[in-house]
Amino acid sequence: MIPASFDYVRADSLDQATGLLERHGDGAKVLAGGHSLLPLMKLRLAVPEVLVDIGRIPGLSYVRDGGDHLAVGALTTHDEIARSPLVGSQLPLLAHVAGQIGDPQVRHRGTIGGSLAHGDPASDLPAVVLALRGTLVLRGPGGSREVDSEAFHLGFLETAVAPDEILTEIRLPKMGELGWGFEKLTKRAQDWAIVGAVAARLDGDGSTAIALINVGPVPARALAAEAALEAGSSPAEAAARADDGIEVSGDLNASEAFRRHLTRVLVGRALEKALV
């Protein structure tokens, strides 16, 4: 469990960090909470030449009221999100999901930025961001840009974050009292979801969004089920279509067939809670 040797730089500012990333290109990796990256390095599945530690850059850990949305700094830990009164009142779904991640140790180290940037379909927070149609703010050497959650996840462990970019902020529309449901089947309390589902009522047109956790290679929305609801189907009918058109993987914990079944069951349960 000893990683290959690497250089380590602690960045003091975003500019310094993006400069380092630009200089080192693909050989560099951003280090935030380290709870996804360090295990991969210890298994020597990730072998970066340089780690750019952004953990001490000031001003990246916050929850701000942006009027119609909340802006969450990338370095905000799962635990901080779970305990934030602002998140608790405006985005209880996010607080609840963050509070269920891994175990207390993981929640105290892991960050929302790391969770999104890692692009792991088994992670919980990407599903929340996808369901709520969040916006991600990326900062590169040339400045900042905003990316729609729809366009953020490109493939397995692959996101829109370029090698010289840093995810700085996640913006999510406030939900207030709107209904939501979160279902996560785990083998043990601390485990990643075998399958998870997020359902959330959206403001405005009153539609309901559904996003899936650990179903396929990319965090995905259950578009067929969403459309069914839109067309007036009952939650149960919509849930029966939760895995329609979704690429579903099989693994040690769930074959493809079982995972499809779980997806339908958990979406059904999440919808029941969201639509009361």
């Binding site: 295990p39 298994l43 083998k187 043990r188 309390a189 601390q190 485990d191 040690l252």
Partner: peptide, 27 residues
């Protein structure tokens, strides 16, 4: 929960604590 698994080629599928489910007090 505990089970040590192999694929047909003899590759261990549960070779670390992420995959091998040692039980905890929470369960």
């Amino acid at each position: 929960v505990e089970e040590f698994s192999y694929d047909a080629a003899g590759n261990p599928l549960t070779g670390n604590f992420a995959d091998y489910s040692i039980i905890s007090a929470a369960e």
